[in-house]
Each structure stands twice: as C-alpha cells, then as structure tokens.
Design a protein around this nucleic acid. Structure first.
Lengths: 340, 340
DNA sequence: TATTAACACGAAAACGGTTTCGCTATTTTC
DNA sequence: GAAAATAGCGAAACCGTTTTCGTGTTAATA
C-alpha cells in the first residue's frame, strides 16, 4: 500500500524547501525553469496530487456544494439533481447530497452537518414539514453566516436568497385553458395538501383560467390528497362527480386516474381529457400516453447551480447583496390523453 | 454577517489556551469541572461547532463517502442511493455523489477528484464503458492507496474488494422456471449488450432453466438491445417470432413489449406472459400490472454502506485484508402479467 | 519535612498545503 | 565600478483542529 505523496516528500527528496515545491507546481514565476522542470517531472512521476482537505482549509473553499432534497426516488428531483451535478462538475465542484425525506428535523440536522465547513453553498428544495411549519430559522442562520443559498421549486418568501421556480401558476392556467378550449366544462383538479408552495400556485392558475372563462368553480371538483402516494379516495371522487377533464399536479395521480377512468368504461381522451405534471417515465409509457407539463428539471438544476457558483465565487464583493428569482418556463407535452 | 467562531476566539475571550478549550469541549479529564463548565457554556452560547475541514485534516478522516453511479435518473440506482444515504447518515457520514453517465472517462475523473482526500471510501457501480473496456486501473490505484472500495451491481472479478450483488442468475432461472411451469415453450429474452455483468448473469439463468427443462434454446428468441432507452427493434422482433412469454432484463423493455403485444391484439397474460426486472413505478402502474423481480435497491445500498463503513473504521488492523461478497436475494413480485 | 503523585493547564508540533517576506547572489543601470 | 534592480529560493506564518509533552501547584505519602 503506497501512501499518497506530499509536498514534504518531494521537498526532502529533491533537497529543496516545501515552499519551492509548492511554487514550482503552481508554476510561479519566482522559480527558475530548471527547478520547475525538475520538480514537475518528479511530481508527475510519483503522481502527486494536492490534498483537497489541506487546500480547503487554507483557502476556505471546499469546492463542494450541498444539495438537500426531500426525496431522491422521485423523477423531478433526480432530474434537477442531474442538472446540478453536471454544471457543478464542469466547474470543478462536487456535490454532497442529503435527503430530508420531507422531515423538518432531518433537514435541520443535514444543514447543520454541512454548514460547518463541508460546503461552500447550499441548493435545496424545502421539506414538506418545513413548508407546513413555516420555520425557517435554519435557513436564516446559514445565510447570516454568509453561506450562499439557492432555493428551488419548494421555496419561501421569508428567506432572502436566490431562487429558481417554475411558472407553476401560468402553466396550470395554460393547461386548464387548453382543456376549456377542448370544450371541457367540469374540470377536476387533483392536488396535494396545499401547504406545498407549488400546489397552491398550480391551484391559482387553475382557478384563474376557470374564472376568466366564466366557469363557476365547483369546490367539489378539487380533490386534495396527502402527498405520499396514497392514492385512495380517487375512485370515489371520480364516481361521485361528473367530470370531463382532469388536471393533476403530479404524474402518479394522473396515471392512476386514467386507469380508474378506463375501468369505468370511459374513453380517454374522448370522454375525459387528462393533463398531468412531471414528464417522467410513466407519462411516456402509459396507455394512452399522458399529456403532461414538463418541468425541465435539468434546466432548473443547471440554473440553480449557476446562481450558486456565481455567488460563491463573487462573495468578495459585499456590495449589498442582490438576489434574483429565476423562472423556468414549463412546457406542455401534448400526447394522447388530450384532444388538442 | 457573523462569521463562525473558532477555538481561538473562545480561548482569547476566556483567557485560556486553545488546547484547554479543545480539551474542555471534548470533555477531557485533564480539565477541571469549573473551567469545563465555563468553556462549554460559552461555546453553547455562541453556538460553536468545530470546523469539519480542520478536523478532517487532523484526523485524516473526512466522514464523507464517495458514490459513483452511472445514472441518477434511474429507479434502481436511486433506491440504492437512498439505502446508502440513510445508513451513512445514521452513522455520521455524508455522501458525495458523482454521475459517470456510463462514461469511462468521467468515472476516472470523478474518482481522481474524490480520491485526493475528499472521501474515506468509495461505493460504486461500474459505468457501461468501463465494463466494455475492462480497464480497471483507476480502481486498482485507489485500492492500492488503501482507500476502501465497495462495488455493487455492476462489478468485476478483476478487483479485490467488497462487493454487493444480486443473485441475478438464480432469480432469472427462477423467473424462467416459473414461466415454463405456466406451460410456456417459446420464451423470449430481452437483454442488453452483454458486456454488462448483470445482463450476462441473467442470461445464464435463463439458459440454465431452459436446458434443465430440455427446451432447446432458440437464439432467435434472444434480443439484444443497446443499453439506452432505444426501444426500436422490439416490434419487428415480436412479429417475426412466435412467442408465448417474455423475460426482460429491465422494466422499460418489458412495458414497451406489453404495449406492442396488446396492439397486436394479443392478451396478457393469457396469450403471452411477461416478467421484467426492476420493481419501479412503471411496473406498478402499467396495464396490466407487471410481474417483475424486485432488486431491493435500498437493501443493497444499506449493505454496501455497512461494508464500507466497517472497512473505514477498522482499517487500523492491517491483518491481510479479507473481502466479502454479499448477495442480495431478489424476489419476484407477482402481479398481472403472468398467470401464476 | 522532604518526596512523590495527582491535578490543571499551556506550549508546541502536527495534518498538508499557500503565501508573504526576507535574504543572497547575480544582473542591470548610469 | 558603485548603486539599484531582479532572479531564485527558504523561513515562517497561517488555516482550525487534536494531541503529546512539559511545568507549576497542590495534595498525599513516608
């Protein structure tokens, strides 16, 4: 087992000082061509690589970014993560992921673990519990320490930081509008407990579209389900109400609906149109294929990483921080579950 | 912006030495009750937390583990990751994830980035390209440096290290066997280019089951598709061959098959039985619901993390390393695409 | 009372780098 | 040829911890 070689070893071996070795390897102009060549050759030969930890301690830069997400076995979050990871890697950053599992406590613990020097900044989507409790002190503490933070998707107004969100309300409006354009009158909304910022935004868009078309809003047509995949209750909802279209805030609810609707002997899209959120694997392989709104998670992750890294690398200029909120434009992927 | 407080600050403020502060906070018996109380109270008041980087540098322990996987937007890998992350977190470790995207080069680069002090050990599944090239020097280098490594799912015999694998051959045997028990005679195998270790293991099991039941193997019934989701070629394969059952090495191929089969006017499972691999979201929501082999990714990740952390924390005893290969038992989840 | 042991703490080295500063020897400038 | 500039390198501080070792004070022992 050959241990990693350090500056000290090289210095001893070549009978120069550690400073000289360090400078030579960083191509400093202080060092002569000759010694530089000699040292660099030796370093290459023995495959010298600087110890990340030591460098981090010295420069107070870890080149790590911390990502805290509520769930990892989840299409949208994984695509966002992929976007983050790609951009980060291209810019020399590594990504530490923690999963809050929708738990406030785990979110807090994870942040605290990482906030003590392990990372240069955070990217996160709030846990469900956190949005419910509205307790954001852990976020405040972190930002007050000067650690950059970017929130995406599940955000809050109570924290001043960069944000990346989807135009949830608008795309829900657009989706609802397109259902109305198909002649649908009784459009159901399948959503979650609406302490989720995204769910309530989507509901807003839904309501606005109906109102603008002077369709009175029937609160019976709005079904709120718990966030987990507990999908019971959809069936009785469907049989109880005379529905001709469904807008679902996620893929699972939508697919499940389609199954039930078909079992009831109704045809999609002839009798009922369905639009979901999240352009995941289910939407592509369902029967019929689901019309859905693509959230462009990759893009969202990329933008989040970009914002964060800019903040990290410019944090020398303390000129009264200015925060931006980037809006990612969702698009509706038209497939077979709608007429248009 | 209040910067983080250090031992030095506490020492200055309380007019003691840094060593005393350090010892007091670590509850050393060298320090008197009085001073300990004083220092601990002060530390709590100012919310002192030791700097992870400095601690890492000192102890040569980062409490980070590096995970390198081929893909993250992929059900199986995310479940494994969840298993890893949970176990790791419970034991005070954080997880740095890198995605190789099936690329050999990215795998190498990622390993090198992390191997210079950032992590205490690796958990990885080999990139497709790596399995194709059979070039494992980057793994060798890492293990020779004494960095513990655990390989899962996509493994190789050429590296001596801990491994966690599925009983792929056996479960494929079992699945094939159960199809034969249904009376199926012409069982197709949908697989990938078989440089993937898992694919070839599964093929082995498939062949063994047929042989044992004296069903001659028709090579025409084995369709090899590229690993990406390029699903063309399945249709012509299905129409060209007279098939009564399908074993697919993944979920996507299986679901796609089911769609095509149904379009051809055949019934599942009456005319054709289908068994897939990966108990993902698709299997649960397809029509009919897919019988599939559950790989228990969570368990696999947990075991991998357990093996790794044990190696990390016991690496003081250099008593001629002994490596184990843990086998996770897959189970067949019986749903609607098979008769039994 | 002299010797030893226990106690409580500080100085300093170490982890592995980067960087400032100072020193010597050579080269340039006038 | 003397003064000044420059080239090339090393010593040492520093990042924030942990840990070994030494030291002065007090308490226990003979």
């Amino acid at each position: 087992m050959k241990r990693k070689i350090t500056l000290k070893h090289i210095a001893r071996e070549l009978e120069v000082s550690i400073s000289t070795v360090s400078k030579a390897l960083n191509n400093s102009s202080e060092i002569s061509r000759d010694t530089k060549d000699k040292i660099q050759a030796f370093a290459k030969l023995y495959n010298y690589k600087p110890n990340n930890i030591a460098v981090s301690l010295k420069n107070k830069r870890t080149k790590n970014i911390g990502v805290i997400i509520p769930d990892i076995v989840h299409h949208f979050f994984t695509t966002v993560f992929r976007g983050i990871e790609q951009y980060a890697n291209q810019h020399g950053y590594n990504v530490i992921v923690c999963v809050s599992d929708e738990s406030f406590d785990r979110e807090v613990i994870n942040m605290e673990m990482l906030a003590n020097g392990s990372i240069d900044g955070f990217i996160m989507a709030l846990a469900g519990e956190t949005q419910l409790k509205k307790d954001f002190n852990h976020l405040k503490e972190v930002t007050e320490q000067g650690i950059p933070l970017v929130l995406f998707d599940r955000v809050t107004d109570e924290i001043r930081c960069d944000k990346v969100v989807l135009n949830d309300a608008e795309i829900a409006y657009e989706a609802t509008d397109s259902l109305i354009a198909e002649g649908r009158k009784r459009i159901a909304l399948l959503t979650t407990d609406n302490f989720f910022s995204v769910s309530s935004s989507r509901e807003l868009g839904y309501r606005k579209a109906l109102e603008e078309h002077h369709i009175s809003i029937d609160e019976q047509l709005i079904l709120r389900l718990p966030y987990n995949e507990d999908v019971n209750g959809i069936e009785s909802f469907l049989v109880a109400n005379n529905i001709d279209a469904i807008l679902s805030v996620n893929e699972i609810f939508a697919i499940h609906c389609m199954g039930l609707v078909q079992k009831m002997g109704l045809k999609i899209p002839e009798d009922i149109s369905v639009i979901g959120f999240t352009d995941g694997i289910l939407s592509k392989y369902s029967e019929p294929k689901l019309t859905t709104v693509a959230q462009h998670g990759d893009k969202m992750g990329e933008v989040a990483a970009k914002l964060l890294i800019e903040k990290i690398e410019n944090d020398f200029d303390e000129e009264e921080e200015v925060f931006s909120t980037e809006v990612i434009s969702a698009t509706i992927i038209r497939r077979e579950s709608t007429i248009n």
